[in-house]
Amino acid sequence: QLNLPENTDDWTKEDVNQWLESHKIDQKHREILTEQDVNGAVLKWLKKEHLVDMGITHGPAIQIEELFKELRK
């Protein structure tokens, strides 16, 4: 059970990391997002292209984008 703020805009980069870990996103990809200071407010704007530009491969980038879309519903 994750204990994250209800509003994703309030998520810290550590919260984002924890959420991605719960969805089995590889540590190396989570570390990239942490290094790039991606918090919840930033995550909602990220598209696959942004994630790929940061060095995340296409498969996980699509997965992260789709997971966040599902979360926002």
Rank of each mutant, 00 (worst) to 15 (best):
I32F: 07
D9E: 09
E35A: 08
L43N: 02
A41I: 10
P5H: 02
L67R: 14
L20E: 00
E14L: 06
D10E: 08
D9G: 12
L46N: 04
F68E: 04
W19Q: 01
S22W: 03
I62A: 15
Q27V: 09
H29D: 15
E35R: 10
V42K: 15
L43G: 13
H29K: 03
Q27P: 08
D53K: 13
P60I: 15
D26C: 10
K69C: 12
L46S: 06
E70C: 10
G59Y: 15
T34M: 02
E21K: 07
N3V: 01
I32S: 05
D37H: 14
H29R: 05
W11V: 00
T8M: 13
N3P: 04
D15F: 02
V52I: 04
E31I: 07
D15A: 04
E6C: 01
Q27W: 05
T12L: 03
K44P: 12
T34H: 05
D15K: 03
F68G: 14
L4I: 08
N39L: 00
Q27C: 10
E6S: 06
G59S: 15
I32D: 02
L67S: 07
F68K: 08
W19L: 06
L2R: 06
P60G: 15
G40K: 04
Q36I: 09
W45E: 15
E70A: 10
I62K: 15
S22Q: 10
D53H: 10
Q36D: 08
K24M: 09
E35K: 10
V52K: 13
D15C: 05
N39T: 11
L33I: 11
V42S: 15
I32Y: 04
E6T: 03
E35H: 08
H23C: 05
N7C: 08
D10G: 06
T34C: 05
P5R: 05
W45Y: 10
T34Q: 07
H29V: 12
V52T: 11
L33S: 01
L20C: 04
L46V: 07
V38K: 03
M54I: 13
D9N: 11
G59A: 14
L2D: 11
E21L: 04
K24H: 11
D10V: 09
K44Q: 13
E31W: 04
R30D: 02
V38S: 02
L67T: 07
T8N: 04
L20Q: 00
K24S: 10
L20K: 00
K28N: 10
E31R: 04
R30A: 04
K44N: 12
L33P: 02
L43Y: 07
D10W: 04
H29G: 12
A41P: 11
Q1K: 12
E70M: 07
G40V: 04
Q63R: 08
H50Y: 14
D15V: 03
E70R: 10
L51G: 02
T12S: 08
N3S: 09
N7K: 09
V42W: 14
L20G: 00
E14W: 09
D15Y: 05
D9P: 01
D15T: 10
E21C: 09
T8A: 11
I62G: 15
N7H: 09
L43I: 13
W45V: 14
L51D: 02
L67C: 08
N7P: 03
V52N: 11
G59F: 14
T34E: 09
K24I: 09
V42P: 07
I62L: 14
E31Y: 08
Q1H: 11
Q27R: 05
I62S: 15
A41N: 04
E31F: 05
V42G: 15
D15S: 03
T34A: 09
L33C: 02
D26K: 13
D10R: 07
T8S: 07
D9A: 09
K28F: 10
K28S: 10
N7R: 08
G59L: 14
D9F: 06
L67H: 12
K13V: 10
H23D: 03
V52G: 13
W11K: 00
H23E: 11
E35G: 06
L43M: 09
E14K: 06
W19I: 08
G40F: 09
T12R: 06
L67A: 12
E6A: 06
F68P: 07
K13H: 10
A41V: 09
D10L: 06
L46K: 13
K28L: 11
N7M: 10
V16R: 00
P5V: 01
W45D: 15
L2Q: 07
V16P: 01
W11G: 00
T8F: 12
H23Q: 09
E6P: 07
E21S: 09
P60Y: 14
M54H: 02
A41S: 13
D53C: 08
E14I: 11
W19G: 00
V42A: 15
I25L: 06
I56V: 03
W19E: 00
I56N: 00
L2A: 05
Q18R: 06
N17Q: 04
F68H: 05
T8C: 11
V16L: 07
D9Q: 11
L33A: 01
E6V: 09
R30G: 02
V16H: 00
E70Q: 11
K13I: 08
A61G: 07
L2I: 08
K13G: 05
K69M: 13
D37F: 14
N17D: 05
L67P: 04
K13M: 07
N39G: 08
E31N: 05
G59Q: 15
H58R: 14
A61H: 01
W19M: 09
E6G: 04
Q36H: 14
L4N: 06
Q36W: 13
L51E: 02
D37S: 14
T12P: 00
V16N: 00
R72G: 14
L67N: 13
A61N: 02
L51P: 03
V42R: 15
I25K: 00
L33N: 00
T34V: 07
D10I: 11
I32N: 08
L4Y: 08
A61F: 02
E70D: 13
K69N: 04
T8Y: 11
D10F: 08
D26Y: 02
Q27H: 04
E6F: 02
G59D: 14
H29T: 14
R30S: 02
D37Y: 13
W11R: 00
G40N: 00
E31V: 07
Q18I: 02
W19T: 00
D26F: 09
K24W: 12
P60D: 15
Q18K: 12
V42H: 15
T8E: 06
D53L: 11
E70G: 11
D26Q: 05
K24F: 07
N39M: 02
D37V: 13
K69F: 13
Q18V: 05
T34W: 05
G59C: 09
M54W: 15
L2S: 09
N17Y: 13
L33F: 12
D26T: 06
N17V: 07
L33K: 02
F68C: 10
K44S: 13
P5L: 02
D26I: 13
D53S: 07
R30F: 00
V16D: 00
P60L: 15
L46Q: 11
L67M: 02
V38F: 01
L20Y: 01
L4C: 09
W45H: 13
Q36S: 12
K73P: 14
M54L: 12
L2G: 09
F68I: 13
K44L: 10
K69D: 14
D37P: 07
N3K: 05
P60A: 14
D37G: 14
A41L: 12
D26V: 05
D9K: 08
E31M: 10
M54E: 04
L46D: 03
W45K: 15
W11A: 00
V52S: 13
E14F: 05
L46I: 08
L46H: 06
L4D: 06
Q18D: 12
E21V: 04
E14T: 04
L67V: 03
V38E: 02
Q18S: 07
D15I: 09
L2C: 10
D37N: 14
Q1Y: 10
E6R: 03
R30E: 01
W19R: 00
Q1W: 01
R30N: 01
K13R: 08
P60K: 15
D15P: 00
N7Y: 08
I32A: 08
D26W: 06
K28G: 11
L4S: 06
I25C: 04
V52L: 10
I32H: 06
L4F: 09
W45F: 11
L43V: 13
E14D: 09
G40C: 01
V52A: 11
L33V: 03
W11N: 08
A61I: 01
N39W: 00
N3C: 02
A41F: 13
P60N: 15
A61L: 08
